[in-house]
Simulated scan of single mutants.
Amino acid sequence: MIWNLIHISALFAGALSSPTPPLPPTFATGDHGPCQILNFGRSADCGGRQLNSVLHKWFPDTVENIDLSSNSLNAIHAADFQHLPRLRTLQLQYNNISHIDDNAFKNNTLLEYLNIFNNSLQVIPTMALASLLNLKQLYMSNNLYKHATLADSFSKLANLHTLSMGGPLVMGLKKNDFQPLKSIKLQSFAIKCSSNLSFYEPGSLKVIQTKKMNFDMAIDQRPGALHHMLGDLANKTFTAITFRNLFEFMYYLNEDDIFQGLKDIKAYQLIFHRGKFNENLLRMALVNLQVTPIKWLRLQYIDFARSPTFVDSG
């Protein structure tokens, strides 16, 4: 029975949100301005302290992990972290950063984890990221840049395994946006676009190699775009594919089966998080799942309502 595939969950692990690594155990503390210095000088906790700038004197040169999340920072300057050659983890999410100097991370070549999620960047900080050849996890979604096009320098980030990008002002995806990633095997890729998706060029995501694919884009105005998205995933294997707010503002009432492409995708789990579902959309998903190798269907916090024309036949 197809219903054996369905798992309706009240838990959501934040597929497109920005995970925060736990701080190392506390062994020692020090007084360095507003920050708490932990783990024998290897970690600095400066999160949630209403800071609007960074002073390099706060951090001993032994620091490897810095948490500056949930502050009021508006810029990252070249001098902020230049004396920290051992820095490996930098959390800058939930600030108001609109500018990052091109050489902001020039001396932080060991950096493996960078989180600039939910800031005010109007462009992808390409030059600042270019020297981070050891980068493994990069979270830069929920910013204010309008295009998702990656520069050629991203092709040098060979160690990258987790990437989240995009934001509410990205109106659509173009075929060459992610070409620099074509030789990089990711574990997780997440893309966010405007709630009013305006365009999706076929082939936009074809070069992406990843185990987990996460979409945060509403196709209310462009439901046909799902054909192209699924087409780009055809003949690939995933552990999970997640759609967040697939239909954010209206229920799908058309007869065109937008889930036909599922039959060409190999995935262990298909997840729909939030978004509007009616019996028409759910039926299309279930019918197509019967001819796919997908093992689990998870519906998380969806807004379900019957169509106005629904007739209960039994």
Rank of each mutant, 00 (worst) to 15 (best):
F59K: 06
I271P: 04
T26D: 11
G48N: 12
K212I: 11
F154G: 05
I100T: 08
T292C: 09
R42D: 03
M250H: 14
L282N: 01
N134M: 08
N254D: 15
I258C: 00
G48V: 09
P125L: 00
V63F: 02
D152E: 14
D31T: 14
N288G: 08
D67V: 03
L205V: 10
K266V: 05
K156G: 01
D67T: 00
A79C: 06
N118P: 00
V63G: 04
E112H: 10
V207P: 00
S53F: 13
T292Q: 07
D102T: 08
N107L: 07
L286K: 15
R222W: 07
N159C: 11
G231T: 10
P125Q: 09
F199T: 07
S153D: 04
M213P: 03
L150Y: 07
R298Y: 07
S194C: 10
K211M: 11
D152L: 07
I66Y: 08
A240Y: 04
S313N: 12
T149S: 12
N52S: 15
S53V: 10
Q269I: 03
P21E: 09
N245V: 02
L246G: 02
L253Q: 14
A158P: 01
F238A: 02
F154N: 04
H77D: 02
Q260C: 08
R88T: 11
N65W: 14
G30P: 01
K185S: 09
L297A: 10
N71P: 05
D61P: 03
L138D: 03
E279C: 02
L68Q: 01
T237L: 07
S194D: 11
S70W: 09
A267I: 07
Y301C: 02
I100L: 05
E255T: 15
G30S: 15
A13W: 08
H273E: 15
K136P: 00
D257A: 12
N108T: 09
G30H: 11
P223F: 06
V291P: 00
E279K: 03
N39P: 00
S9V: 03
W58E: 05
K156D: 12
Y251I: 06
F40V: 04
L181D: 06
N143V: 10
I184G: 07
M127A: 15
S120M: 11
H32M: 06
Q82C: 08
C35P: 11
N278K: 07
G41W: 02
I191D: 01
N96G: 07
G41E: 04
V207K: 07
C46E: 10
F40T: 00
I37D: 00
L282G: 01
I124G: 08
L133T: 15
K276Q: 13
K263Y: 04
L111V: 08
G203S: 06
V123I: 13
E64N: 04
G33N: 12
T242F: 09
N65E: 10
T162G: 01
F117M: 05
N254K: 13
R283A: 14
I97T: 01
K236S: 04
L11F: 12
A267T: 02
L299W: 03
G33I: 10
R274N: 14
D80V: 06
F238Y: 15
R306L: 14
Q82K: 13
I184C: 02
L160N: 03
M165Y: 01
S153G: 02
L181E: 03
Y301W: 12
F81I: 08
L205T: 08
V291M: 10
L73F: 09
P60V: 05
S43T: 15
